[in-house]
Every structure is written in C-alpha cells, then in structure tokens.
Amino acid sequence: MAVDFIHVEGITRINTFIRSGEIEYKAVNKGPEISETAQNKLLEKLQTLTEEDMLFVSGSLPKGIKDEVFIDIAKLSQQKGFQLIWDISSESLINCLPYHPFLIKPNDEELAHLLGVPALKTDKELIGGARELMDRGAGKVLVSLGEKGALYVDENESLFTTAPIGKVVNTACAGDTMLAVFVGKLIQGENLEEALICATAAGSSTAFSAGLTDLSDLQKLKEQIKLRRVVM
C-alpha cells in the first residue's frame, strides 16, 4: 500500500491502555508540535485531491494546529469535489457542515454535545438529532451507540442495529473500525443493510479483543445482530 506522509520533527505519540478489572485507564502521551510549514504542506497536498477521492479526517488535533484547519479542509472538499468523512469530537464540526461533508460519524454523546443537549435517549431523539445535522449540511450520519449498536440516517433511511453480546475488554478504535468497515463495504458494492451489520460486528470485534482484532469472529457476531428500519 502506497503512503505519502508529511514528515515532522519529533517522535510519534505512543498511548498505553491499561485495564484493571472493569476499569480502563488511558495513558496519553504528548506528540510533537506541528509547524506552520508542515500544516501548509498538508493543505497543499489535499489540494491535489479530485472528485474520484475520499478523505477521512478523524481523531484529535496535535499540538500547534488550531481547529480552523477543519474549516480549511471542508472548504477544499467543496472546491475540489472529493468526498469528506468526519470522525472528530471538535465543536468546529458544526461549522464544517455548510460545506456538505459526505458522512459524519459521532457517537451518541458527541451527537448530543453538538446539538447542545444533555443526552439523546429515544429513537425519535437520536434520529431527530442526526437529521438536524443533515439539515445543516451533512450528507449522511452514522452514530455509534456502544453496547446499543449503531444508527445510520440519510435522506431516505433511518436504520438501527443491535450490538452482539460479548465482554468488552478494549474500547480503543471500536468506532474507527465500525466506520472503516461501513464505508469499505459500500465501496465494495454491498447494500446499505449488510454494510451496517458488518460495521457493527467489526466494531464489536475490536471491543471484544485485547489487541487488534483479526475479524475471525465477524460472521458469528453478525448472526447476533438485528436490523431495524424506523419510519418517521
């Protein structure tokens, strides 16, 4: 697989996750500070993307980069026509929606926070929250619901999946796995329902694995998942 990194001074941040019984601790180290030169190089590289490309922007920003970079990327997506997928917890996501991202993936707590409400608990509240973000410009919304499964909303569909049963030993990257598998399955030509079920199973497989999952339990987990379509 080809890579094209922007190289910066400093070492890669290493995070450690420690689980003691039912409690998970995260030791998050500081990464390098990103220079303005490196930031400009990244934006220049993104300007080469075209309508045939898809860009995922996820995680938190490293030191030295301000939230305004999200707006710059959103504008580039609209100008160049590439599909943009957001998986960030920054409040700046709201300001990126007018540039019509292809997909956003908050979890249920992040969705409530973006809307300025304490929580979204019912089907109606969750779907209504997702549709409010679509009204502001988001094309599609995928919401990870943890042990409750997932929600997908677009202009035509509102789909819920349940989560399979298992022991959670690792919460890191479960949402990332869900998003990657969901989009990957759609690119491979799978229908929406199958993509959402596979994505939910893959996210759960990560959560049930102490390290990186090999997805060997994917089919078994898929068989436990139920899909529900909600008409509102």
Results as ranks from 00 to 15, higher is better:
residue 2 A to I: 13
residue 4 D to Y: 14
residue 7 H to Y: 12
residue 13 R to N: 13
residue 16 T to N: 02
residue 20 S to D: 06
residue 20 S to H: 12
residue 20 S to R: 10
residue 23 I to W: 03
residue 25 Y to D: 00
residue 29 N to R: 01
residue 44 E to Q: 12
residue 45 K to D: 09
residue 49 L to I: 07
residue 51 E to A: 04
residue 54 M to F: 01
residue 58 S to D: 12
residue 61 L to I: 00
residue 62 P to D: 04
residue 63 K to P: 01
residue 68 E to T: 01
residue 68 E to I: 00
residue 71 I to T: 05
residue 74 A to L: 01
residue 76 L to G: 09
residue 79 Q to G: 00
residue 90 S to P: 05
residue 90 S to H: 12
residue 93 L to W: 10
residue 95 N to S: 15
residue 96 C to V: 01
residue 98 P to T: 03
residue 100 H to V: 08
residue 101 P to K: 02
residue 105 K to Y: 10
residue 117 V to E: 13
residue 118 P to C: 01
residue 120 L to M: 09
residue 127 I to W: 10
residue 127 I to A: 07
residue 129 G to P: 11
residue 129 G to C: 13
residue 132 E to W: 04
residue 141 V to D: 14
residue 145 L to I: 11
residue 147 E to D: 14
residue 148 K to N: 15
residue 150 A to Q: 13
residue 154 D to Y: 05
residue 155 E to T: 09
residue 168 V to L: 07
residue 169 V to K: 03
residue 171 T to W: 04
residue 175 G to D: 09
residue 176 D to F: 07
residue 178 M to Q: 14
residue 180 A to V: 08
residue 182 F to H: 03
residue 183 V to N: 12
residue 184 G to D: 06
residue 185 K to L: 00
residue 188 Q to D: 15
residue 194 E to R: 08
residue 195 A to H: 00
residue 195 A to D: 01
residue 199 A to T: 00
residue 208 F to I: 01
residue 210 A to L: 05
residue 215 L to P: 06
residue 216 S to N: 10
residue 219 Q to K: 10
residue 220 K to I: 06
residue 223 E to F: 02
